[in-house]
């Protein structure tokens, strides 16, 4: 799997940066470096053609607002690592995988099918309606939740980058 226009140096650089970010945030990359680099080639290719790093193992629409949940790291990563030991692509894996006590197996698709998806805006509104109870109306600050890792913070606006998992601001939702 090689793509024109993506050099091996770029792939190596992205690999080092992803690996460091993963470790900083308490995550682990798949120990199979060649497999990971193939996925990184896919991520860089998607960044080139769509403008954002859509999941290489899912079909992106090319519309950022529809694909926000599958911008890597995706909204489903933590649940899949928890349940299956790996994210959908097996880019990120659990400790049991890295220490060899569990093997990577296919991860079923957790993302809702196309017909049930709706846009991120609609989903955000639904989440707020469920999460925002009336008893919290008097909080001095809104509470924002990172949809990638669950990090919560109380401030006027979500942070530009999640301090835990490095997801960008647009991956935050109003929680309370």
């Amino acid at each position: 799997m090689t793509f024109t226009g993506i050099s091996e140096q770029e792939v190596d650089r992205a690999y080092d940066s992803l690996k460091n970010d993963a470790l900083d945030g308490g995550y682990r990359l798949n120990p199979d470096a060649e497999f990971v680099k193939n996925l990184i080639r896919g991520l860089l290719k998607n960044e080139q053609r769509y403008g954002y790093r859509a999941c290489p193992c899912r079909l992106a629409s090319g519309k950022m607002e529809v694909d926000l949940d599958i911008v890597c790291p995706c909204d489903y990563r933590d649940s899949d690592i928890e349940e299956y030991g790996a994210c959908y692509c097996a880019l990120y894996v659990s400790e049991a995988i890295t220490d060899g006590t569990r093997k990577v197996a296919p991860v079923p698709e957790r993302r809702p099918p196309r017909s049930q998806r709706g846009t991120m805006k609609e989903r955000a509104v639904q989440t707020v309606a469920v999460g925002g109870g009336t008893t919290f109306g008097s909080l001095p600050f809104p509470v924002w939740r990172c949809k990638v890792c669950g990090y919560l913070c109380a401030r006027d606006q979500p942070p530009g980058i999640c301090p835990v998992c490095k997801a960008k601001k647009d991956r935050f939702e109003r929680f309370l």
């Binding site: 996925l39 896919g42 290719k45 290489p56 193992c57």
Partner: peptide, 9 residues
């Protein structure tokens, strides 16, 4: 398949 997907390959 997808051209970018490790499991497809």
């Amino acid at each position: 398949a997808l051209s970018t997907c490790g499991w497809c390959a």
